[in-house]
Simulated assay, not measured.
Amino acid sequence: MFSPYYKKSGRADPLDHCALNVALYGPGARWTMTERARGAVRRDADTLQIGPSSVHWTGNALEIEIEEMDKRVGVPWQRRVAGRIRVIPETMNATAFALDPQGLHRWHCLAPRARIEVTMQAPALSWQGSAYLDSNFGAEALEQGFRVWHWSRAHSRKGAFVMYEGIRQSGRPFASALRFAADGTPHEEDVLPPVAPLPNTLWQMERKTRADRGLASVARTWEDAPFYARSTLRSTLYGEPVVSVQESLDMARFASPVVQFMLPYRIPRVG
């Protein structure tokens, strides 16, 4: 959905603009998002093949086979990114949510809680931990529906919390707080925690979240781009201390000619 080539094409053929985005942070960091044309894409009910990489649903786990190259334009080296990831849902949720009154943009939290097993060959890393799986889909471009949005998710003792808010293109704000039970059932909270402002990123991206008493801190900024930021936060939600993954997105910045000019250097296209 952030492909400059897809946007320039008029978004007529999404299968002609597919990519697997891999972001590894910390020591041995890698970042790859190579866009591939329709001829390199295969799919059926359980599998999506994008070039040499694939995503496959086994019935109880999502298995991601990675064979990519970190070859961003301007980076003086090309480094292999290869490995296998298994995402094993602990809970599943069948309900998708509309993010706008017309239902043109929908968000589906497929697995509010999951476990993850990562085995990488390049770089040589492996770990296990907590995970989450969701999907966004819609009938129009994001910048047509939204100006900005902020999202965060945290494991709770038994389930998960998800905070969603932003400003639609009409100028109207929206906000929701979802609590997912241990069985994956979503419950929309009637009372939202107050807004917790966060410091801007180096790119001056505005970030915010929701937290008890309006207090939250940034533990680590993982991704800092002109129109997007991803961070780890520490806060308290409904009386429970949590560690959250938080994302902020500025669609006006994304659609600007300057950012559209910069994106191909970050996202190469083959085929």
Rank of each mutant, 00 (worst) to 15 (best):
P4R: 05
K8Q: 12
K8T: 10
S9D: 12
S9F: 05
D13V: 14
D16W: 12
A23W: 08
G26A: 06
P27F: 10
G28W: 06
W31E: 05
T32A: 15
R36W: 11
R36F: 10
R38H: 00
G39M: 12
G39Y: 11
A45S: 09
T47W: 06
S53T: 15
H56T: 13
W57K: 02
G59N: 01
I64R: 01
I64A: 10
E68W: 02
K71G: 15
R72P: 05
V73Y: 13
R80L: 06
R84Y: 11
I85A: 02
M92V: 11
T95Y: 00
A96N: 01
L99H: 09
L99E: 10
D100F: 04
G103H: 03
W107K: 10
H108F: 01
A111Y: 03
A114P: 01
R115H: 15
E117T: 02
E117R: 13
M120V: 14
Q121N: 11
S130L: 15
S135V: 05
F137Y: 14
G138L: 01
A139R: 14
A141L: 09
A141E: 13
L142V: 12
V148W: 06
H150A: 15
H150R: 12
R153S: 00
S156M: 03
S156H: 01
A160F: 06
F161V: 02
M163G: 07
R168Q: 10
Q169G: 09
F174C: 07
A175F: 04
S176L: 05
S176A: 13
L178H: 15
T185F: 00
T185K: 02
P186G: 05
D190S: 15
V191K: 15
P194D: 01
P197G: 06
P197F: 04
P197Y: 03
P197R: 09
N200E: 08
N200P: 11
Q204F: 08
E206W: 07
R210W: 08
A211H: 03
V218G: 07
A219V: 15
A219K: 00
A219W: 03
R220L: 14
W222R: 07
W222Y: 13
W222H: 15
E223Y: 13
E223P: 11
E223W: 14
D224Y: 02
A225W: 09
P226W: 09
S231P: 04
S235F: 03
S235H: 08
G239W: 14
V242G: 00
V245R: 05
E247N: 09
S248W: 11
R253K: 15
V258K: 10
V259G: 09
F261R: 14
L263Q: 00
L263I: 02
